[in-house]
Design a binder for these strands. Structure first.
Lengths: 219, 219
DNA sequence: GCAAGCAATATTGTCAACAACTTTGTACCA
DNA sequence: TGGTACAAAGTTGTTGACAATATTGCTTGC
């Protein structure tokens, strides 16, 4: 892989570095607890150490990186307990979004969600995990989108980045689609039926069940 | 006021600057939309511009400061619409905390909350706004504490910082205590009765009513 | 063989200078 | 009078050098 610096000839800005490093952490190129030595990252990504340093400071506030005084930065390792907490917070926030989405949804958007429901049923019948997983992500994103809640959306997005490793494992669990499909369909039904309370409950139940699965992997 | 630099003889670290600037913004010494010129802040607080710059970057991620490329930083102005959203997110998260608190609360903690309920009733009867406002803050803080939800607590705290200006106005509204006192008592009752669903509902209803008041000030 | 102290190395924290960009003010021309 | 081009000032973005701190490995004495 060629670095961006190698291609463009200029060095990366702080904002670009934040994006690049965030992707590297969320994407798993930088693994939990891995040390992030400023000088190494600087030569790796073709940036000055000062900019690397600034980027690490921002990612620390985002919760992706952990720093201790005079001892440098590491990729933050999220414990199972913490992943459960994060998922519970997501449950509360996405339930809020589902509630607002049920209040605001248009007929066009409802038709779109119904079509998505069809694709999800199909995918489960065919045993197509990748397609189902994709629909899953689209559903959650669409509900947040329709809710038009900027603050909740930003918070959910940040938390997702921290726990993405656990989500990933989850989707591969055998028998998981059979459990989650009816939950997803219940969310779609309630949102499309303009039923805020039912939509919030359905979303909360769904993500609480995700939290339970994560909890159970702790043993 | 003497700067910390003037007292200690050394210049401030980035971490110290973040705290100082955060307090200044939340406390209202730096008002919304006020420009934050790095060089000015540097001489004001007796720090190097580089450290000021790093501190502003962190506060930007926290949502207290707004920056645009090459045009500097300002204190972020939170709109009424945004304050409503923030309060709704707080409603969802504090409802989660109330639920968990109801599950975990000990008898000692329950007695403490009941005593707080008494003080709140007293304060309203006596018309003592300051005391009631203080109890209010203690109640919310205690419920979050008892819930032992680190992730939710950190998120609530960050959001509170952004909307603190609106909260402040609210407490001074005439007739407000008469509305909020029964809501607060309902929260305490449900949490102490180990009733998670009721606790979550009571907290959500309470903060949604706060959101309504903020919304109504827009007109 | 082992622990304590010390030197060497690695790494982070801070700073001041320089470069790049944006805005403001002014002169000139239609 | 209005607008455009250009110069000047103000401010932010970036970098490399230096200082402070932590870690590692070695030596020495027991």
């Amino acid at each position: 892989m060629e670095t961006l610096e190698g291609i463009t000839g200029r060095s990366l800005t702080v904002a670009e570095l934040v994006d690049v490093l965030r992707s590297a952490i969320v994407g798993g190129d930088l693994v939990p607890n891995q040390r992030l030595v400023e000088a190494d990252l600087a030569s790796e990504y073709g940036a000055s150490r000062g900019n690397i340093r600034a980027a690490l400071a921002e990612l620390t506030v985002e919760g992706l990186v952990e720093r201790v005084q005079n001892r440098g930065a590491r990729v933050r390792a999220v414990s199972v307990e913490e992943a459960v907490e994060i998922t519970e917070v997501r449950a509360a926030l996405e339930a809020l979004c589902a509630r607002k989405a049920a209040e605001r949804i248009t007929e066009g958007e409802a038709a779109e969600l119904q079509e998505l429901a069809g694709r999800m049923k199909d995918a489960v019948e065919r045993g197509d995990r990748d397609s189902y997983s994709e629909c899953n992500q689209i559903l959650h994103a669409r509900v947040i989108d329709i809710s038009a809640q900027q603050t909740a959306a930003a918070t959910i997005h940040r938390l997702r980045g921290q726990a993405v490793r656990f989500q990933f494992r989850l989707a591969r669990q055998p028998g998981r689609p059979a459990v989650s499909l009816p939950q997803h369909l219940a969310i779609i039904d309630a949102v499309c039926a303009h039923n805020p309370d039912a939509a919030a409950d359905a979303m909360r139940v769904h993500l609480e069940s995700v939290a339970d699965v994560i909890r159970s992997t702790h043993t």
